[in-house]
Amino acid sequence: MNIPNILTSFRILMIPVFVAVFYLPVEWNFTGAALIFAIAGWTDWFDGYIARRFNMTSPLGAFLDPVADKLMVVISIVLIVELYETPWIAVPALVIIGREITITALREWMAEYGKRADVKVSFIGKVKTLWQLGAIFFLILGGATPALVDVMGYSLFVVLGYFSLYVSVALTLWSMYIYIKAAWPYLTAKEL
């Protein structure tokens, strides 16, 4: 275990804490959950930086990091769908979760044929993740009552959350297109 792997493990261990705080029957539950989510997001950036900067990459880290990311994002999105109870959140959530499952399966399939590098994380994928994390943070924070800042009757955080969510959905679809396009020659080949 090195520092990046410890940070990634910490992120996984924060998930039940995040969920517990989200459901606490206190006024600050959403604020607390949003802060925990933000800390987890920063550890994601920080563990990757340390791993690359100090050459601490490992097979365990390569496995755990995407697992931690997907767990945190999917669990957070499910909670947000419950919190807002609207198709304007549920439909983007379905797109995001569906894309995660599709691309994870595609990467696994490509790895079986030694072609995983053809569907490695792209720049658009990283930008998509940043917008997703922002959307989740703002939407959770937007559930806090009373709203910290109102914009024409809406919480500023909810407005920012919706905006970020729809930008992340556009980037989600774009990145999925890039990955499927890269894999298409292998998917349509008669033999590999």
Rank of each mutant, 00 (worst) to 15 (best):
M1A: 13
M1H: 09
N2D: 11
P4F: 04
N5W: 04
L7E: 03
T8L: 05
S9A: 10
V19C: 04
F22V: 08
Y23V: 13
V26Q: 11
E27S: 15
W28E: 06
N29Q: 08
N29I: 05
A33E: 04
L35G: 01
A38M: 14
D44N: 06
I50A: 01
A51Q: 02
R52D: 04
M56Y: 07
M56R: 12
T57C: 11
T57V: 15
G61D: 05
F63Y: 15
L64V: 08
V67S: 04
A68G: 11
A68K: 09
L71P: 05
V73I: 13
V74D: 03
V78L: 14
L79G: 11
V81F: 05
E85H: 12
T86L: 00
P87K: 08
W88K: 00
W88D: 00
I89W: 01
A90C: 01
V91I: 15
P92M: 05
I96E: 00
I97S: 03
T102V: 14
T102D: 07
I103A: 07
T104R: 02
A105S: 12
A105I: 15
A105Q: 12
W109F: 14
Y113D: 10
G114R: 10
G114D: 05
R116E: 13
A117R: 14
K120P: 05
V121I: 13
S122D: 11
F123H: 12
I124T: 15
G125N: 12
K126N: 04
K128S: 03
L130A: 15
Q132A: 03
Q132H: 11
L133D: 07
L133K: 08
I136K: 10
I136S: 07
L141C: 06
P146E: 00
P146T: 00
D150R: 03
V151H: 11
G153I: 01
L156S: 03
F157S: 02
V158E: 13
V159C: 00
V159L: 01
L160F: 14
L160P: 04
Y162E: 00
Y162H: 08
F163H: 05
S164D: 06
S164K: 06
S164C: 13
S168R: 02
A170M: 02
L173V: 13
A182S: 14
A183V: 06
A183E: 10
W184T: 11
Y186A: 09
K190M: 09
